[in-house]
């Protein structure tokens, strides 16, 4: 069995084999999730804490459901209202939670690297549910699963990632994963929303959407944050939709069987036309949500196995982990 990692902090640290292991296991959880009785007990007796320093309904409920279906005791901590507001540092918060002996810690934080910092200070498995503009590994894994199920493979595909790449951890994790799995990645967006030095990452950069979509197998749209729409990075919402919003005309440049993805929540009429989003022949946006639960179950299952193995070793060696 591959996947030896203790934490899931980013795609950066995973190998091709790790990624395949997660996706294969997730496939099995997709089947489980489609049954009436969805519960297993692989995490029975374990405690999962979801710490979301940034608001998120979708990701948090996906992790919560994943944990519950695996039989873990799941606790959600709403960090916006907690002692963080009273000036407690991230590390103190982590140490406090650590003293309660959680087994899995799911963390989202607004600062890049914050989850790495936290992982150094606790002795349980940490899952990065998004840190600043750095990584969002489970999103990239669920996107990979969605692609593999729709296209029959995750490799040798041309994938276009469109929109606000600069501020997107989803784009970063996907770029790294798709490169690791030997795909051709194109980034499309206005130059003000492209990070510096991005062309050195092994991808092609386009500011013309039609040219970028030419012959693509997968079109991955990114969410454009409302606060970036008014003159700071782009002139206006309507000009953005005109130049970079996905509509039927622009999509016609991609392959006929190209699939359309979006990490959600969507801004209809800003980055994606409502008709495209709802087109069951093209859009796999609902599948992405379904795959999300399965992929998170797979990740937590694998991390819990490693945690048990590590604790088992520690017990025979007489040390406590």
């Amino acid at each position: 069995m591959a996947f030896r990692a203790r934490h899931l902090l980013g795609i950066e640290h995973l190998t091709q084999e790790d990624i395949r292991t997660v996706l294969d296991l997730a496939d099995r959880y997709v089947e489980l999730n489609r049954r009436t009785v969805k519960r297993t007990d692989v995490l029975a007796g374990m405690t999962q804490i979801n710490m979301f320093f940034e608001n998120s309904t979708r990701t948090q409920s996906s992790f919560e459901l994943a944990g519950k279906r695996l039989g873990a005791d799941v606790m959600n901590m709403s960090m916006q209202t907690s002692s963080v507001k009273k000036g407690e540092t991230l590390i103190d918060t982590a140490m406090t939670l650590n003293a309660m002996h959680p087994d899995l810690l799911v963390v989202r934080h607004g600062s890049s690297g914050a989850v790495n910092l936290l992982a150094e200070k606790v002795n349980c498995a940490v899952l990065n549910a998004g840190d600043g503009k750095h990584e969002h590994p489970t999103q990239a894994l669920l996107d990979a699963l969605t692609i593999r199920r729709a296209k029959g493979r995750i490799g040798r595909l041309t994938v276009a990632i469109c929109g606000d790449v600069a501020h997107s951890r989803v784009a970063r994790s996907n770029l790294i994963l798709l490169n690791k799995m030997e795909n051709r990645v194109r980034l499309i967006g206005p130059p003000t929303l492209m990070p510096a030095g991005i062309s050195e990452f092994g991808c092609e950069v386009y500011d013309d959407m039609r040219a970028g979509l030419e012959g693509a197998d997968v079109v991955m749209m990114l969410r454009l944050q409302k606060e970036r729409m008014d003159g700071g990075f782009i002139p206006s919402e309507r000009e953005y939709f005109h130049r970079y919003g996905l509509d039927a005309e622009k999509l016609s440049y991609a392959k006929d069987d190209a699939i359309v993805m979006h990490p959600g929540p969507m801004n209809r009429g800003v980055e994606i036309d409502g008709e495209i989003a709802d087109d069951i022949n093209r859009s796999v946006i609902q599948e992405q949500v379904e795959m999300g639960v399965a992929v998170r179950m797979a990740c937590m299952d694998l991390l819990a196995q490693n945690l048990r193995a590590e604790r088992g070793r520690a017990a025979t060696e007489g040390t406590y982990v």
Binding site: K133, A196, G197, E200
Partner: peptide
């Protein structure tokens, strides 16, 4: 400093 490293780590960079 902006560039490959800043983009890799998702940190705000200055040219």
């Amino acid at each position: 400093t902006s560039g490959k490293f800043a983009s890799l780590r998702g940190l705000p960079g200055v040219s």
